[in-house]
Nucleic acid binder design. Sequence first.
DNA 1: TCTTGTTATTAAACGGTGTTCAGATAATGA
DNA 2: TCATTATCTGAACACCGTTTAATAACAAGA
Lengths: 199, 199
Amino acid sequence: MARRNQHSREELQDLAVAAVLEIAERDGVHAVSARSVARQIGYAPGMLYHLFENRDDLILHANARTLDTLAAAMDKAAAKKTPEKALLAMALAYLQLAQQESPRWRLLFEHVMAEGAEVPAWYQAHSERLFALLEQQLQLLAPTRAPSARQLAARAIWSGVHGVCLLAVTGKLDVVSSVREKALVESLVTHYLAGWLAA
Amino acid sequence: MARRNQHSREELQDLAVAAVLEIAERDGVHAVSARSVARQIGYAPGMLYHLFENRDDLILHANARTLDTLAAAMDKAAAKKTPEKALLAMALAYLQLAQQESPRWRLLFEHVMAEGAEVPAWYQAHSERLFALLEQQLQLLAPTRAPSARQLAARAIWSGVHGVCLLAVTGKLDVVSSVREKALVESLVTHYLAGWLAA
DNA sequence: TCTTGTTATTAAACGGTGTTCAGATAATGA
DNA sequence: TCATTATCTGAACACCGTTTAATAACAAGA
């Protein structure tokens, strides 16, 4: 069978991306392969290579959707709060999402570009949106500071929170069960901010 | 050919681990495979499965060596310093090592256990040594605080520093080139500590 | 309506991966 | 010297990402 023309190119891309996320959630990250995704959307594996450049491209499209979900959750979490509380709420929103939809986030955390391949600009734009949300609150919190200082603080906070979420989701943190991940994020954000503001 | 008995089991394990690290450094992380490692040490791929349980086991042994190198560097960096300076020095030692031997660290950062497999206890012991080094300094810095508070702080700091190193090595941080990684680590550690001590 | 051209789709293959295992070979102990 | 034991290999299995020639269905024109 060939040329059925049931879906537009864009529809097929959406179907494939949705299939990636669904398979990851249902069968685990390891189960996401060109063949499994193709089977799920009812096409041959080769079809995926007319829709995406390669596997990286497909996974990045799925991960971009995950990042957008997070950006929306952070926006919501920050609404009508003081900058300090907003920053903490955004960090906790990250942790919560990463924990409750961990397969999606493992897909994001554990994805590695093929040898020599660079992360494309369009994807970086998605992740930069997150930094922008932080910088926005830091702007309100410390309007007189240099923009470069705020950029640095935003990246320091986010790298730190990212580290906690990553270790939490990939299960490398449960060394001491008494230390809860939420407490880690709270400690990291509040103490860093306190120190940063006092400096 | 079979049964040449040139090396003991332990020697062969060491050879294999060394081969993993050498191939990663020379040809890149992607080039590390059962076949390439076996070829490098002059044996058949199947041999590796008499020396290690599986690929994860082999990689973990290599990564444990990387962790031990870091622990030694941290020990050296912390010597004869005040606790605060020691903590910063240890974090910077991490960053420096991760940056200058990035293939080894990509091997560590990007390694993912097979589906359903847990990180074995003997490996966790290696990474716990790092936390212990931090807690040791925090003990000197804030001897009156509860041990659980120090455990939490050690993990918060380390998760944060880990986040920076990871993003730096895997190249996901160069969004704003003006922000240097070293400045991020310094900011993270000093401001967190300042806030933590003031609390 | 018939034909031609275009486009979506697939089957099959290629070279790679981790892993298993029966069998071959050399060292060892009796 | 012979039987046993431990070491090591070759070949296979099932999977992976990816490419490509061939095919079938649609669209357009005559």
